[in-house]
Design a protein around this nucleic acid. Structure first.
Length: 625
DNA sequence: AACGTGAACAACCGCATGACT
DNA sequence: CAGTCATGCGGTTGTTCACGT
């Protein structure tokens, strides 16, 4: 030993941590307390700052802890104070059951004992670790009794499972892990615990947090929930099924964020009785509308029974999304280790899922259906602060039907789904009483926007044109400008297509919509199959139609952001590198500013104007698989 | 430097489930 | 079979930090 003076202020002549882990921890805890004194002396922020910086390096340097590096590592990993603890703490706080722990949250246990809440201290961690070492996991309620730790069993279990358990991986997810999570989520839905079993060292909480963050990020970027390649991993024979499944999945996640309570509403008019769905007969006595939108009202087909018991309209979901009979495989959880999609043979990791094939029960783990269990309180779209109804087909009149009966392609659906938060209501003249308030609010917003700067100008700027152009932009020109750069396969620019099918809306909510029959692609739902089989042309056409009918385009408020992003999606989505889709933030290249004030919009228009040139031409888009 | 905002993380809460009595 | 308890799970909320303005 070169110098052991540093130990003396702590009252230690030497350290022997070569014993058991428990002993080492105790010693280290002791060191910690004593280092508090040093911290005070040297005016450190936190005793552990001093302790960690000095002790470990030097202890190791002197070989004191050489024999117990594992212990030290363990200490470092598990007993380091949380970030929140890195504030000057009272000495009493080091000691358990200190009389004064400041404003720490407390709760009263069943036996009347005061239990700590909030962040765990390193001391508490140490106690818990020791306890588990001695008694093993489980019997968490006994921790409090046996160890004196003022934490409820639940809290102990959580702390152990999420932080103290050995072999937990810390730090950011690797690319492989991220990919795994995405695929697992596509299969399992929000079954975080199950997903965690496939990611050694990761906890369900970590995965959940990661996913929620990811959702928000991608939503804000206007990206689909699942990367494109995930959607099209299906084998050829299952392609259609998987597309459908994928649409449903994407649809589900996004729309969940847009759920909006509208009691007693649904899609009655969209059921298969209209003959739109040739496979309807595959489902005994169940309409697509029921499956999609009425699950909660149809106990016999309780796909949505668990969706927070909230009545909601799965807005924007059209029966025509479904191009063929859903395969049973959609509703089965596939082999966990086999991360491919589209298996038609059922794998049964959980036998109780077998019945799913009969459509008689819930889908415990699958997101294969549109409704998911995403947070209702957290809008998935960062672009919209309010949880707006997307497509409030709350009425059963023709107008609502008209609106719902697009024949969107996969891409269009995807885009539409992604942008649905701003799609408040398409039926300008058939606003349900429930939605009128929101629509009024949006109207007001639109008026404010148009009155202040003119949202048409904003829109124009979003398409990357000059300020001079902006002056001339209005009405349809807006849309033309928006789409002018896109060459359609048959010599139609998007703008021309828009012209052809342009209803007299021009940004005014008060205008009606063209009759359903006038909407290209809406004549016959068999078009969907064509969309799916020959996605290029049809898709682009319909997607532009779709976007055009997006009510936010009519409202103009959020359209600027969403619409331009949608355009980007159309152009970028297909040829974007997989890595982009796999989570590399699209925003980084194409910075998206969340919708907010009008000034935000203006700011964003400039940003997007710059990036617009990067957007590849539609004609260069590779074909869908 | 101050402030605002979003991401990441940690923890809590309520409910579901299964074991046990 | 019903009630209780322990545990697990998923949703939600709160806090901190980093970054941009």
């Amino acid at each position: 030993m070169q110098d052991s003076n540093f130990l003396q202020p702590m009252g230690l002549n030497s350290l022997d941590v070569s014993g058991s882990m428990g002993q080492a921890i105790e010693i280290l805890q002791s060191c910690f307390k004593r280092s508090k004194l040093l911290a005070d002396r040297f005016n450190c922020l936190h005793p552990l700052d001093f302790f960690m910086e000095l002790q470990f390096s030097r202890l190791k340097q002197f070989g004191v802890v050489e024999a117990s590096c594992e212990t030290v590592r363990f200490w470092k990993m598990n007993l380091l104070p949380t970030k929140r603890e890195k504030e000057p703490i009272a000495e009493d706080n080091i000691v358990l059951h200190s009389t004064d722990e400041g404003s720490r949250a407390k709760s009263i246990g069943k036996d009347g004992q005061v239990l700590n809440k909030g962040p765990w201290t390193s001391a508490e961690d140490a106690i818990l670790i020791e306890y588990v070492k001695k008694h093993g996991e489980g019997n968490w309620n006994a921790v409090q009794k046996n160890s004196g730790l003022s934490r409820c069993g639940k809290s102990c279990r959580l702390r152990w499972a999420n932080h103290l358990k050995p072999n937990l991986k810390k730090g950011a997810f690797t690319m492989e892990e991220e990919e795994m999570i995405i695929q697992l989520h596509a299969k399992m839905g929000n079954k975080w615990a199950k997903m965690a079993t496939f990611l050694p060292g990761r906890t369900d909480n970590e995965i959940k947090n990661y996913w929620n963050t990811r959702i928000k990020r991608r939503q804000r970027a206007g990206l689909p929930l699942y990367p494109h390649n995930i959607c099209f991993q299906a084998s050829d024979e299952n392609q259609q099924t998987q597309i459908v499944s994928c649409v449903a999945q994407q649809h589900s996640g996004i729309l969940q964020g847009n759920r909006f309570d509208i009691p007693g509403t649904g899609f009655e008019n969209l059921n298969t009785g209209h003959g739109d769905l040739s496979f309807a007969s595959s489902f005994p006595d169940i309409s697509v509308s029921n499956m999609i939108c009425h699950g909660y009202e149809s106990p016999g087909y309780g796909y949505m029974d668990k969706v927070n018991h909230v009545k909601q309209v799965d807005a924007g979901c059209d029966a025509t999304f479904y191009s063929g009979p859903p395969s049973v495989s959609q509703f089965l959880v596939e082999p966990p280790a086999q991360l491919t999609f589209g298996l038609d043979y059922p794998y049964d990791p959980a036998p109780n899922f077998k019945d799913l094939a009969t459509f008689g029960g819930e889908i415990p783990d699958s997101h294969a259906f549109p409704i998911d269990k995403f947070s209702a309180s957290r809008p998935l779209s960062g672009a919209v602060k309010l949880e707006l109804p997307s497509l409030q087909c709350t009425e059963t009149d023709d107008s609502s039907l008209r609106v719902c009966r697009f024949t969107p392609t996969f891409e269009a659906v995807n885009t539409y789904i992604e942008s649905s938060p701003t799609t408040v209501s398409l039926q300008s003249e058939s606003i349900s009483p429930q939605s009128r308030g929101l629509l009024d609010a949006l109207l007001h917003e639109a008026q404010v926007l148009s009155g202040s700067k003119g949202y048409s100008s904003l829109k124009c700027s979003s398409s990357g044109i000059t300020d001079n152009d902006m002056v001339e932009c209005s009405g349809l020109n807006t849309f033309e400008t928006e789409w002018e750069g896109y060459n359609y396969p048959l010599g139609h620019s998007a703008a021309s297509v828009l012209k052809e099918c342009t209803p007299p809306v021009y940004g005014s909510l008060s205008h009606g919509f063209p009759p359903f029959k006038d909407i290209p692609g809406s004549q016959n739902t068999t078009v969907i199959a064509e969309h799916l089989s020959t996605p290029n042309m049809e898709e682009k056409n319909t997607s532009s139609h779709l976007d055009f009918y997006r009510p936010d385009a009519l409202l103009g408020s959020d359209w600027l952001e969403e619409g331009s992003q949608v355009a980007k999606d159309h152009s970028v989505f297909n040829d974007a590198a997989t890595t982009t889709l796999m989570g590399h933030d699209f925003c980084k290249e194409h910075k998206i500013v969340p919708a907010g004030t009008s000034s935000d919009l203006v700011r964003e228009t400039k940003l997007q104007s710059h990036s617009w040139g990067k957007v590849p031409n539609v004609s260069r888009m590779p074909e869908l698989p």
